Computed example of a mutant assay.
Amino acid sequence: MPALPVQPRDAFLASRPAVLAKGPLAILLVEDGKAVERTVQHHLDLGFRHILLMSDQPQDLPETMAGRVTQLSHDCRRPAAHVNAVNAVIRAVAPGTWLYYAFNAEFLFFPFCETRSVGEMLAFHTEERRPAMLTYVIDLYAPDLKAAPDAVDPDNAMFDRAGYYALGRRGADGQVRERQLDFHGGLRWRYEEFLPADRRRIDRIALFQAAPGLTVTADHRFSVEEYNTYSCPWHHNLTAAIASFRVAKALVTNPGSRERIGDMTWRHSHRFDWSSQQLMDLGLMEPGQWF
């Protein structure tokens, strides 16, 4: 398979190419070579108009993807690599453009995504006057680390069906933030001793509309507080989920944890069937008023 040419990120964004004229657009940050093609294909199948693939290494992808994927140079291995990348795209697109960001080996799911496109879903969300959408990052992991030592096994993926909880979020002033919660669970909860406190949350505002002056933070929140809310004041809104091998990869790679984890499965491990209905049945995403 040919490698996609790598274009200078800033020069490409400054040129305001036609592919940025209309969303939804996906920003995928490539931290390593795990499941890159599968990640890209999954998001193309969801209906994203174009994917900006951020990487400092050329990625070998099928020629059929070339028209909907642009690879841009970006070092995704440095801490908080998403901040500079996402904020650069926000500045480059028109206000109101829907954007999404995630990493390789992460897969977006939203209610009824098997039969409805991401554009249809975001059109409904826009009608509800919501400029952003809460996503829960659901950790995936291999059931057998001997067979898959990198913890990535999409065909046999497991996830936790229990152990999720939320805590009220307080601002710098000590006051509880309205309609904001810190969500926890999955591998980040079970192996919290190996993760810094600021990386234990599983909530991420991964879908949002670009706006002048808007910026994302290192902890996956935004500079506009309304973007960080889970719903409007009147009723429950749509939420989505990101099925992610990212934490599992880190746990079996990092020196502080890799020798102490022999098996990630436990009594609440369950086979992931790659369906939105499974996630809705377990309360891991919310259809809101969308039926």
Rank of each mutant, 00 (worst) to 15 (best):
M1R: 01
M1P: 03
R9K: 11
R9H: 04
R9C: 14
R9T: 11
F12C: 07
A18D: 13
K22P: 00
G23C: 05
G23V: 06
L25I: 15
A26F: 05
I27Y: 04
G33I: 01
K34D: 15
H43Y: 01
L44C: 07
D45Q: 13
L46N: 03
R49V: 06
H50Y: 09
L53M: 05
M54Y: 04
L61H: 03
L61R: 02
A66V: 04
A66E: 13
T70Y: 11
Q71I: 04
L72E: 05
L72W: 01
S73K: 08
H74D: 09
H74I: 00
D75C: 01
D75K: 03
C76V: 12
P79D: 02
A80H: 09
V83L: 04
V86Q: 04
V86L: 07
I90T: 08
V93W: 09
V93S: 09
Y100R: 00
Y101F: 14
A102E: 08
N104L: 02
N104W: 03
F107E: 01
F107W: 09
F107L: 05
F110R: 03
S117G: 12
V118D: 04
E120K: 03
M121N: 13
L122S: 08
L122E: 11
A123F: 00
H125G: 01
P131T: 11
M133Q: 12
Y136K: 02
V137E: 11
D139E: 15
P143T: 10
D144Y: 04
K146Q: 06
A148F: 03
P149H: 11
A151I: 03
D153W: 12
R161I: 13
A162R: 12
G171I: 07
D173G: 14
G174F: 09
G174P: 09
E178V: 00
E178F: 09
L181V: 15
F183N: 00
F183C: 09
G186C: 08
F194R: 05
L195G: 06
R200T: 15
R201A: 06
A211P: 01
P212M: 06
G213K: 02
D219F: 10
H220N: 15
R221T: 15
E225R: 12
E225V: 10
Y227N: 14
N228I: 04
Y230M: 13
Y230S: 08
P233M: 11
P233G: 11
H235L: 11
H236Y: 12
N237G: 13
A241R: 10
I242N: 09
A243V: 10
R246P: 00
A248C: 04
K249V: 12
A250F: 02
N254V: 00
P255Q: 07
E259A: 14
I261Y: 05
I261A: 08
D263G: 03
W266K: 03
W266R: 08
R267L: 01
S269M: 02
S269Q: 05
R271I: 06
F272Y: 15
D273C: 03
S276T: 14
Q277M: 11
L279K: 10
L282N: 14
G283L: 05
L284N: 02
L284G: 02
L284V: 10
M285L: 15
W290T: 00
